[in-house]
């Protein structure tokens, strides 16, 4: 049972800081995200800009870009994911240690973007790996990336470590490795991971009736 917020506030005025183990851990995790150092297209340039002096992502504790997935806990999918690249992205995700988080940066990583009709572009990396934060834009400005990062930190701070609705990394039943798609004769096989993503239902008529 967490501490009563009001009581904690009262104690704070007396100079006594009370916290729970859970929020301490989550605070630590959210404040030292180590992103995986890889970029796929023009969004990567904005990502680099966000880490440089002007926007300075280090202010939010996410400046240590790691060139190895073993040392990273945040995957920034910055750019167009081609079908040829998708298995490698999933493989990198599998190689990262839990807890791990994914930010899909830019229209391409979210949905295929302007290349959505193309035969060679994956229509959103969320077809294969679970995405925590989507940042729209083509490409998103560095401020948008920072906003997405802060949102992700908010998500991490709310994570439960025990109980029924605990976070994936605290759940021994949480999946270990995601299946890596294989190169098929016409498309990736399978074209999506049904445990992670399913085509959204569409009912345009129903929507129209509501309006």
């Amino acid at each position: 049972m967490a501490i009563d917020d009001k009581l904690a506030e009262d104690l704070k005025t007396q100079g006594v800081h009370v916290t729970s183990f859970e929020s301490l851990i989550n605070w630590g995790r959210s404040s030292s995200l180590w992103p995986l150092q890889f970029g796929l297209a023009c969004c990567a340039i904005e990502m680099i800009a966000a880490t440089m002096a002007k926007y300075d992502m280090a202010r939010f504790g996410a400046e240590v870009f790691r060139p190895s997935p073993r040392q990273a806990d945040l995957m920034l999918v910055a750019g167009t994911v081609t079908k040829k690249m998708a298995p490698q992205v999933v493989r990198l995700y599998n190689q990262m240690a839990e807890p791990k988080y994914v930010i899909a940066m830019g229209a391409c990583a979210i949905s295929g973007g302007p290349f959505k009709d193309g035969y060679n572009v994956l229509k959103g990396i969320d077809r294969y790996i679970p995405v925590d934060v989507f940042i729209p834009g083509c490409p998103p400005r560095p401020e948008a990336l920072l906003e997405g990062l802060i949102n992700l930190q908010g998500i991490i701070k709310k994570e439960k470590l025990i109980g029924k609705d605990r976070a994936r990394h605290a759940d021994p039943e949480g999946y270990a490795d995601l299946p890596v798609p294989e190169y098929g004769a016409h498309d990736l096989e399978p074209p999506m991971n049904p445990n992670v993503w399913n085509a959204p239902d569409s009912n345009p008529k129903g929507k129209g009736d509501e309006a």
Partner: peptide, 22 residues
């Protein structure tokens, strides 16, 4: 394209893979 790919995607009669999303 990857080595296992069999089609010629720039030909006029090429049919896109059916990975459409609503």
């Amino acid at each position: 394209m990857w080595d296992e790919f069999e089609d010629s995607p720039m030909r006029k009669d090429y049919v896109n893979p059916d990975d459409y999303e609503y």
